[in-house]
């Protein structure tokens, strides 16, 4: 992921708003893989993930005007679009009917191993990263970020008081940060 300086990101956004072809091409070349990776992490199904990535680019195209730089960088904005679109598909009726996985909860446990085979050589570090997390930290990140659970649903799934979900989230990201560095 090439880092954008504030200037070039501003320029990129301005070009995206004019529906500049090269800007979208650049977006795909530089962010397509990360967005696709997140979608695959959530859906773990190539055909569905391709459709979702297409949907994500259409949404970016349609809603780039409403992107607010004050609320976060473009990448964060796009990641959230991709996550939400993939979670919506995951939850849609019919998505899981041809999979053996019967509940959302199950997929949280199964897809780490499923993904580790899908992510091939250049992502060997990933497995280590997730494995390095304490179990309780890994689960809250996965339920929140990849499964779209609410605080209430997380409290219920992890059998903890609602008031401690945010504290746990903070501890989880603190550990994640120490692992990433």
């Amino acid at each position: 992921m090439p880092p954008f300086s504030a200037n070039t990101e501003e320029e990129l956004i301005a070009l995206l708003k004019t529906r500049d072809r090269q800007a979208y091409s650049y977006l795909y070349d530089n962010y397509g893989g990360a967005l696709y990776g997140i979608i695959m992490k959530i859906l773990n199904k190539e055909e569905a993930a391709k459709d979702v990535l297409q949907e994500v680019f259409v949404k970016i195209w349609q809603h780039i005007e409403s992107y607010d730089a004050g609320k976060g960088r473009l990448y964060t904005w796009m990641l959230n679009i991709a996550r939400n679109a993939a979670i919506d598909v995951f939850r849609s009726a019919g998505f899981n009917k041809d999979k053996k996985i019967s509940t959302l909860e199950n997929s949280v446990y199964t897809d780490t191993s499923a993904l580790s085979t899908a992510i091939r050589t250049d992502h060997m570090g990933l497995k280590k990263l997730v494995e390095g997390l304490k179990e309780e930290h890994r689960r809250i990140i996965e339920l929140a970020y990849f499964n779209g659970y609410t605080q209430e649903e997380i409290a219920q799934a992890l059998n903890m008081p609602l008031g401690t979900v945010k504290t746990r989230a903070r501890a989880a990201l603190a550990q994640l940060k120490s692992l990433m560095n």
């Binding site: 990360a34 696709y36 990433m180």
Partner: peptide
């Protein structure tokens, strides 16, 4: 947000061939 961006980037996966064209 940067932490989550980096975390998300760690899942980076090359999209299938031809997807860019269909998009």
């Amino acid at each position: 947000q940067r932490l989550m961006e980096d975390f998300a980037s760690s899942y980076h996966l090359p999209p299938p061939e031809g997807l860019k064209e269909s998009i």
